[in-house]
Design a protein around this nucleic acid. Structure first.
Lengths: 242, 242
DNA sequence: CTTCTTCACTTCTATATAGAACTAGTTGAC
DNA sequence: GTCAACTAGTTCTATATAGAAGTGAAGAAG
């Protein structure tokens, strides 16, 4: 076959068109996380391109973190695990210093009209609001409020809590085919309001770090807006420049 | 010539050895910022490699941000301009919203013994301490304390203030041949001590953001430790994930 | 059952080559 | 002097090919 999918825009180089084609097929859910993609040979035959061109296209997707190559085995779709990136911002470690994924406690799931700023970011005001608390060793340290478009996640508010793990993105993928590929974070400082302070067990007005996130599906469509709030003294962020 | 420089360690692939060789020559100062490197043809002839292999080596250095390719012109050494990255963390904009490099006021330069943590990071306790204040429209908004190894920057404390611009890294490069290639930032929150509060014109104990930076020369040697302190309400950081 | 060998398949490295696309300077026409 | 055409040099795209290196499973040897 010669990929009858919607031809990439203009007269772009072949390796870019192939890259976009593969990305589109990933977005369409043709392969699931950790699935094996066709080999370079197969792809080059299917698209009537040389292996070198195919490698160049794949390499870009590897650089973007979408794919993973294993010499001798094949090329695999990577499952993005960047729910954990939120915790780059906080010291989320057990007492023994081992990093771990905090447990989640869902507080509420309600269909509401989104605040103006959130509606603007998501492109719709018809959303489901999720409130949850992240805990480490039974100790709450991060309060989150999330909004997801009701049209994109129908019935989410009715999913039994037992079927929702500590991470949400796998749920989005498994139940709704929404593959969160990219996110934008913004970090600010502020003070805790009464409700948040109560949940976190800190004083009202205590300094907190606020992390806003807008997450996008592979298609570029925004699929989740969230704000996380944690005590400022646990905040710590490292970055490498250059 | 066939590059008599210290051969790269083991039996690594040729493109990696070439990459390291070029990086070493950059570190040795063979080319200055914005200089033109030898063309792919010349490099392939000099090292007895094919053009494809040379391109692969160069591409890695481009990905790392060291080099810049301009089709039709050549490959150039990029001058890192990441003093500005500090201000990714703060809203450093003029009243009209235009981003700008804040002015600097040097408060002191003294040869001192570094605090233990700093000495550990720099590998020596014999340092020069620099205190300065970054201002925007005459309004101070960032207080910095820097430590640089006295042995690496002899006489820095005696350079006339008029010869030091708003950015320090160009001074390091021009006067001491120290090319800052990489840095690690760590962001925390805290409260202002008396001296800092006075300098910034805020209340003692007011919430502040603290950015610690350890900067490295191309050789990997640490050359500067600094801590910057600014009011938390001006802090704002954006990042893109995925 | 365990261990070793073989084999098919994969990605990885490297070469050689051809032409397209682009840049910057020089030359020539007017 | 001005502008267009040409040219030498550069990176970029793409192909074809060969063998090295690594993987995983199947089969042989003990």
């Amino acid at each position: 076959m010669t990929a009858p999918s919607p031809q990439s825009d203009t007269r772009l180089p072949a390796y870019l068109r192939l890259r976009d084609d593969i990305a589109r097929r990933i977005a369409a859910g043709e392969w699931g996380p950790d699935d094996l993609l066709p080999s370079e040979n197969k792809l080059s035959a299917q698209h009537a391109l040389s292996v070198g061109t195919v490698r160049k296209a794949i390499q870009q997707l590897v650089d973007e973190g979408l794919l993973e190559r294993r010499q001798g085995s094949g090329t695999f779709l990577r499952k993005p695990a960047f729910d954990a990136t939120l915790f780059r911002f906080f010291q989320a470690r057990e007492a023994d210093g081992a990093p771990s994924i905090p447990s989640s406690r869902l507080i509420s799931r309600t269909r509401v009209t989104a605040p103006a700023a959130v509606a603007a970011a998501l492109g719709t005001g018809d959303v489901i609001r999720i409130e949850r608390l992240r805990c480490l060793s039974e100790q709450p340290f991060l309060a989150e409020t999330l909004y997801i478009p009701a049209a994109r996640f129908p019935g989410f508010e009715a999913i039994p809590e037992s079927e929702i793990g500590p991470l949400l993105y796998p749920v989005y993928l498994d139940r709704y085919g929404v593959f969160v590929a990219r996110a934008e974070d913004e970090v600010r400082f502020g003070t805790a309001d009464a409700a948040t302070a109560r949940r976190l067990g800190i004083a009202e007005g205590a300094p907190v770090a606020l992390i806003e996130r807008l997450a996008f599906a592979m298609s570029g469509e925004p699929v989740e807006w969230r704000i996380a709030c944690g005590p400022a003294d646990r905040f710590r962020y490292r970055s490498r420049i250059g």
